[in-house]
């Protein structure tokens, strides 16, 4: 499938918008809120950490919906959406894990602990890595799409687990920004959320959601183009 001029135009506009947003959000995280008192400058990592997590959460949610739609309609476009969003989500959750680990070093004194939240996000990442492995291991294309959709639906349980565990386990040391939690604030490295911090957090979340959508769109375009090229190759071979 060849992209129309109109579609390419909108993709370009969205790309510029998301690039602008990313730069603006990064500058905002450095300048707008003041440094935090008990943690110092490292607290600013929190903005990219939470932003990229919500970005990957968005893509994984899109993937599970696309998987369900694929199984119902058997339209290949849903499969392309599913595979593309998983790939982008995997990249963004790697950002979440890396920034979290570096934030944890001065705050908790170690890069990694087997805290339930950290464990579940590691499980989540591994599950989606296995998803990509599954796609590459099955040859029959129709079966590959079907199995991938099934596995994308199962894999989403790890995302739900990641979000739920922080609110139900009493031994979680990960900070909760919004909503209830069962541990006391001082062991977790929590901080006072001033209006400036809150605005920056929301702006970053918004930015990374837009960014993940645009990246997924680009990724789908690659998939479409490679399908299109494959078809043309086959038609040349068929004509000879």
């Amino acid at each position: 499938m060849e992209y129309t001029e109109n579609r390419n135009f909108w993709l370009r506009v969205m790309t510029y918008v998301s690039a602008f947003l990313l730069v603006a959000a990064t500058i905002m995280s450095f300048t707008y809120p003041g440094a935090e008192r008990s943690m110092g400058e490292v607290q600013r990592l929190f903005y990219i950490h939470l932003g990229s997590f919500f970005g990957s959460f968005l893509t994984f949610s899109v993937a599970v919906v696309a998987g369900i739609y694929y199984l119902r309609t058997r339209d290949n476009k849903w499969d392309r959406l599913e595979a593309s969003s998983v790939e982008i989500g995997l990249g963004l959750s790697a950002v979440t894990i890396v920034t979290g680990a570096i934030w944890a070093r001065p705050t908790w004194g170690t890069y990694w602990t087997w805290d339930p939240r950290l464990t579940t996000i590691a499980i989540m990442w591994l599950t989606y890595a296995a998803y990509l492995f599954l796609r590459s291991a099955i040859e029959d294309p129709e079966r590959k799409r079907r199995f991938a959709a099934v596995y994308a639906i199962i894999a989403f349980s790890s995302v739900i687990l990641t979000i739920v565990i922080i609110r139900v386990r009493p031994d979680v040391i990960h900070p909760t920004v919004a909503g209830p939690s069962t541990t006391s604030a001082d062991v977790r490295g929590e901080f006072n959320v001033t209006p400036r911090i809150r605005d920056t957090v929301f702006f970053n979340i918004f930015t990374y959601c837009v960014l993940s959508a645009v990246l997924t769109w680009h990724r789908i375009r690659i998939e479409n183009k490679s399908d299109f090229i494959q078809e043309r190759k086959l038609s040349i071979l068929g004509n000879m």
């Binding site: 400058e41 600013r44 990592l45 990229s52 950002v95 570096i102």
Partner: peptide
């Protein structure tokens, strides 16, 4: 506490991944 180095490393790695 002075944790500027960690912040710079974190942002550098995170944005490098993006």
């Amino acid at each position: 506490p002075d944790t500027l180095d960690y912040m710079i490393t974190g942002y550098a790695l995170g944005l490098a991944l993006v």
